[in-house]
Amino acid sequence: MKGLADIVTYLGRSILHILGFSGYTILLFFRSMGYLRNIVRRRHEIARQMFNAGARTFGVITVVSLFTGMILTLQTGIALKDYGMEENIGNIVIATLTREMGPFSAAIILIASIGSAMAAELGTMKVSEEIDALQVMSIHPEDYLVMPRVVALTVMMPVATIYVNTLGVIGGAVIAESHLGVSFQTFYLHVLESLWFKATYVGLFKALVFGMAISSISCAHGLRAENGARGVGRATRNSVVASFLVILIIGYYITDMFFREGL
């Protein structure tokens, strides 16, 4: 009986903690957006964060995107070949990339590399009293630290998504030509045929929302870090897990919202 009570207490506490933290994250996002008026003043920090999100992940995004397109083409193309429909592989690759795979691949890479770094950086600042120092100087962390990171990732996420889609198509074209016997020209004709405007802008919209969510979640975990290095490690890990879960949930609801009635 006592064991059951402990489990219920633990679950209750966990739910309350998750709800409280979600509220804090949403508030943090809106508070940081309240400082958008300072966007010109913060341009150097925004540029630094954009550089981190772009240049520093360029290599890994390139490899992941190429292989995503290659795997997608190989797996789907083999199945299509059984029905003699391998020429349509371009349609499937572009539809999958623009609607889901592009934004998700970009998000997963940026969560792992940039979101975790944001949580660790702000977490370290928190435990080494730098956040307290800013507050005593009447500098708001939401303005000085959070807003530039949210803006940078919100801008860079769609850019990364376009890059993932483009390289995914290139990787797919190479495999289509080498393994399925589909010429580059045929592949690209089918890609263009299925490059629907709605799928593209919904994919980019998803990326934009993912950027806001990942940066807000990462900053929130960083700013709530405590208890030294162990606390920073915990904040970083939790920010990655929470970001993954949240983009899956948001991704589903955006798809449902825009594609319920079809294209």
């Binding site: 630094r48 600042m125 080494s128 009293e129 730098e130 307290d132 120092a133 800013l134 507050q135 005593v136 100087m137 009447s138 500098i139």
Partner: peptide
């Protein structure tokens, strides 16, 4: 109220991507 006060933190609490000059000039 905080405008009236300053804290000298034990660890220094300097912003690690700013130079010494920029840290002091920050406020």
């Amino acid at each position: 109220l905080r405008m009236k006060m300053g804290i000298v933190f034990q660890s220094g609490a300097l912003i690690n991507w700013l130079t010494v000059f920029d840290n002091i000039a920050l406020p």
